[in-house]
Design a protein around this nucleic acid. Structure first.
Length: 447
RNA sequence: UCCUCGCUAGCUCAAUCGGCAGAGCGGGCGGCUGUUAACCGCUAGGUUCGAGGUUCAAGUCCUCGGCGAGGAGCCA
């Protein structure tokens, strides 16, 4: 009995007879020769059948095997530069093939691009395509690298609740559900407030899980359900926050480049654009970004683009603004010190400039925009209470949150990172819906 | 909520000014010993999103509706 191996390890089995358990991704028959491209979850490998080497009945069966059939293949591994696949360069000379299940002939996914509607309706099958496999492998590595960095840097993972009481910023953007006799509960849009409680016990914490937003955003950067990482640190100011974001993001990039290069190559990603990213990342203030945008506005000659770049101090960046800023840099850029009016109530005011707060967004290059958003939080009880009143928020709902500032309050900071946005950026794909296994958008909850 | 675009074979798309419903892929049959989304020959496959209207004639023009897309708004 030959050893069952993973395609990802195939290079270590050259010259040996092995077994591959997987699915027929593509078949090319050529007279007395038949090529099967087989995927096993860890990679894609070419398996070759020669008519002369096999019983006639078996060869005939291989020639007719439908796409997506599940198979167990026995054969000898050999190096061959012509062999496609991931990692590629090795192929299996078929000695035996057992069909676990012959797929029906009407498999709907062709090995080519599909329309968005069709692809999303068939997400359960689309996942099998090499491009989707590669993207989601990168995603898993982004998540693993994130945890790896945090866990080795003294952070403790805290699971914050997904079912939450009345919302921090009103209920219009939250999914609502019945909660027994307690009235309404809402799906969490952030674990931050809970992590602000957690830091007073654990120092440095993070939560990592799904986040829900009922906003009617319809863009390539938005999902209604997405995965967000939220670290929160005691005794950490805005500069310390940027330092941590920079180190963590750099680690994620290095780890993806180390472990997922073949996947990125298969996606056609220009590796040079991410290989060159090294700290430090540029840090510019909102004020400077505003000047930069006004300069770009002056220089722009296309009236349509010019209109999109129009910018007045005090407004939040739109997607065209973010794109324009990031195009000035070849690595991620921090923009800090946003106007308080466009940011959340809990952000620490800038010393001496109350109209600005100690917030920071990390914008990814190549037009991908915001991948992290964070801030130093207000640590003074009365200042926070004043902000809650000013925003017209229900003080009662924030009773516990305010109490954190009464017993050993410290400067503290945190940020949120969108996993799908980071994945989409590293993969170089157009839309973040491909960066999550089963995307939830305003128009889709199926499959 | 607004703006724009789209909907034709299982899939991706074409169809000129309103004038016979087409191709490639996929399926079926056949051929080929190195294919890379193979190639070559043959073949089957249609409620042109729906309803109404204009016309000798509508995939194409008009009205209404449906579904989807990506932009704006919104976005802890």
């Amino acid at each position: 009995m030959s050893k069952i191996i993973c395609v990802s390890d195939i290079s270590t089995y050259a010259g040996q007879e092995v077994q591959i358990q997987g699915w027929v991704y593509n078949r090319t028959d050529k007279g007395k020769l038949c090529f099967l491209l087989v995927r096993d979850g860890t990679g894609f490998v070419q398996c070759v059948a020669f008519k002369g080497d096999l019983p006639e009945e078996l060869f005939d069966q291989i020639m007719r095997i439908p796409q997506e059939s599940s198979v167990i293949i026995t054969g000898a591994v050999r190096e061959d530069k012509r062999a496609p696949g991931i990692p590629g360069g090795y192929e299996v000379g078929i000695k035996d093939l057992k069909i676990v299940q012959a797929a029906e002939a009407d498999y709907p996914m062709a090995l080519k691009d599909h329309g968005v509607d069709f692809a999303l309706d068939h997400r359960h099958l689309w996942l099998r395509m090499q491009s989707q496999w590669a993207i989601l492998r990168v995603r898993a590595t982004v998540m693993a690298a994130t945890r790896e960095w945090l866990d080795t840097n003294g952070f403790v993972e805290m699971s914050t609740p997904i079912l939450t009481p009345a919302a921090a910023e009103g209920t219009t953007t939250l999914f609502e559900t019945e909660y027994f006799d307690e009235g309404k509960a809402y799906l969490a849009q952030t674990g931050q407030l809970y992590n602000e409680a957690n830091i007073f016990s654990f120092g440095k914490v993070y939560c990592f899980g799904p986040t829900f937003r009922a906003e009617k955003s319809k863009t390539r950067r938005h999902l209604t359900e997405f995965w967000m990482l939220e670290p929160e640190m005691a005794f950490c100011d805005l500069d310390g926050l940027m330092e941590i974001e920079e180190q963590m993001v750099t680690h994620i990039i290095q780890r993806v480049l180390r472990d997922r290069k073949p996947e990125l190559v298969s996606l056609g990603r220009d590796l040079a654009k991410i290989e060159s990213i090294k700290p430090p990342f540029p840090r510019i203030s909102y004020d400077d970004a505003a000047k930069m945008l006004n300069d770009l506005y002056q220089k722009e000659t296309d009236p349509e683009k010019k209109e999109l770049l129009k910018f007045d101090w005090g407004i939040d960046f739109g997607a065209p603004h973010e794109t324009a800023i990031t195009q000035q840099f070849d690595k991620p850029v921090f923009v800090y010190g946003y106007p308080s009016a466009v940011k959340a109530f809990y952000m620490e005011p800038w010393p001496g400039r109350p109209e600005v707060c100690k917030s920071v967004d990390l914008l990814a290059p190549e037009g991908y925009g915001e991948i992290c958003g964070g801030s130093e939080r207000i640590s003074d009880h009365n200042a926070l209470l004043a902000r809650i009143h000013k925003e017209g928020l229900p003080e009662e709902a924030f009773k516990w949150y305010l109490e954190l500032r009464k017993y050993g309050s410290v400067p503290h900071s945190g940020f949120g990172m969108g996993v799908e946005r980071v994945t989409a950026w590293l993969c170089g794909i157009e839309h973040i819906r491909e960066a999550i296994p089963f995307p939830r958008t305003i128009k889709r909850v199926y499959p």
